[in-house]
């Protein structure tokens, strides 16, 4: 057990846990932020994607002891009013079916759009193939990312 001070969505949290505990479970069970989802636990499905200092990481595979001073942003903190261009595009394109995993692809896409504001289909394919959508909404996800990249104009 060890005490860790974390900043999640600009709020400070103090947790006393095993240093090996993956960030995912600290976020879900200790910070009570359940928008970040558990899918596989081995960084294969991407449902647990969060931002660490702006980079997309699989929170199921990052031990809490590795966080240090890095700022954590989860889906709940991506935008104040749920109006990040990707969130708006997800709504506009009506992407979700079961709706369990979307925080994963949204967080992945939000990170890479900062570096690649106008991605091609192929770039989206490559950058998003770490996020599994079991409902098969991949074409709508791609459409929503393009829509967000174009500033919401379809």
């Amino acid at each position: 057990m060890a005490v860790f001070n974390l900043t999640i969505n600009n709020t400070d949290y103090k947790v006393d846990v095993d240093p090996q505990m993956p960030l995912l479970w600290v976020i879900r069970d200790f910070a009570g932020l359940t928008g970040t989802k558990f899918g596989c636990g081995i960084a294969q499905c991407g449902a647990c994607t969060v931002h660490l200092n702006g980079d997309a990481v699989r929170s199921c595979s990052v031990p809490v002891s590795a966080i240090g001073q890095q700022k954590i942003v989860t889906i709940e903190g991506l935008s104040e009013k749920g109006d990040h261009p990707l969130q708006k595009a997800w709504e506009e394109v009506d992407v979700p079916q079961c709706g369990y995993c979307p925080s994963g692809p949204i967080m992945s896409a939000a990170a890479f759009l900062k570096d690649k504001p106008q991605p091609t289909d192929q770039e989206i394919d490559n950058l998003m193939s770490g996020n599994i959508c079991r409902c098969g909404t991949y074409n709508r996800i791609k459409k929503a990312i393009h829509l967000a990249a174009q500033g919401g104009k379809s």
Binding site: K37, I75, E76, G82, G99
Partner: peptide, 14 residues
């Protein structure tokens, strides 16, 4: 989808 807003902001509970 009626729940989309809750889903994309992480508020939807499963």
């Amino acid at each position: 989808n009626y729940d989309t807003k809750a889903i994309i902001t992480g508020k939807q509970k499963y």
